[in-house]
Design a protein around this nucleic acid. Structure first.
Lengths: 109, 109
DNA sequence: CGGAATCCCTGAAGATACTG
DNA sequence: CAGTATCTTCAGGGATTCCG
């Protein structure tokens, strides 16, 4: 993908698009670290496969971190990074807008 | 799609996902109204087909308006609505974050 | 000019089964 | 527990053609 001279909005969208990425970030912004299984339970409807792939991409882009503990059974924790933390104001605005517009639509029905 | 009891973030994402929607909103937030052809030139790389479909969805969701003038050749203007205007703080945060993170990555290379 | 209609294709996402 | 490996499905998006 072309990353030079790219619109910052598109850049952000590219990193954050993915059906569950914002919800994962949201969950980790509320509590960090969290284990795989806990995230799976919190992100309703997600499959382990999808959770893994979304976590991998978020990790690659530096938004979250991953720590493995050599226990039996295995323990893996995911934590929000400082970059991930920096998405908070953006997520808040998205949340606020969604909330307002969502109720707009409910009024119509 | 299930719209009740939906996460506001997901609600916003659903309305705004679409490869060019944010760029169209961005263009109309800078200048409104604008004609089809002008938008087509400003949204680099978009095809007329895609522009039409994205505009239709934005219109359906109340973010933009559409006015037809019975001239020859036909004139159609698209304008931002008050709901569309309300996305400005959100878009600004997305833009700011994209800009910051984009330069983070450039430093690494 | 500003579309509509059509066809096609890829990549995101879902389901299933298995493993260190 | 926390994944990996495959297969399949499907809708977003692209290209092309035609029209009032």
């Amino acid at each position: 993908m072309e990353e030079k001279n790219m619109c910052p909005v598109d850049y952000a969208v590219n990193l954050l698009s993915g059906k569950y990425k914002l919800r994962i970030l949201h969950a980790l912004l509320q509590e960090s670290p969290q284990r795989f299984k806990v995230l799976e339970r919190r992100i309703t409807g997600i499959s382990p496969t999808m959770l893994t792939s979304q976590l991998r991409e978020l990790e690659k882009d530096g938004l979250i971190g991953r720590t493995i503990f050599a226990t039996v059974p295995p323990t893996v924790e995911y934590n929000i990074t400082s970059v991930g933390q920096s998405t908070l104001p953006m997520l808040n605005e998205i949340y606020k807008w969604g909330l307002a517009h969502q109720s707009d639509n409910l009024k119509k029905n």
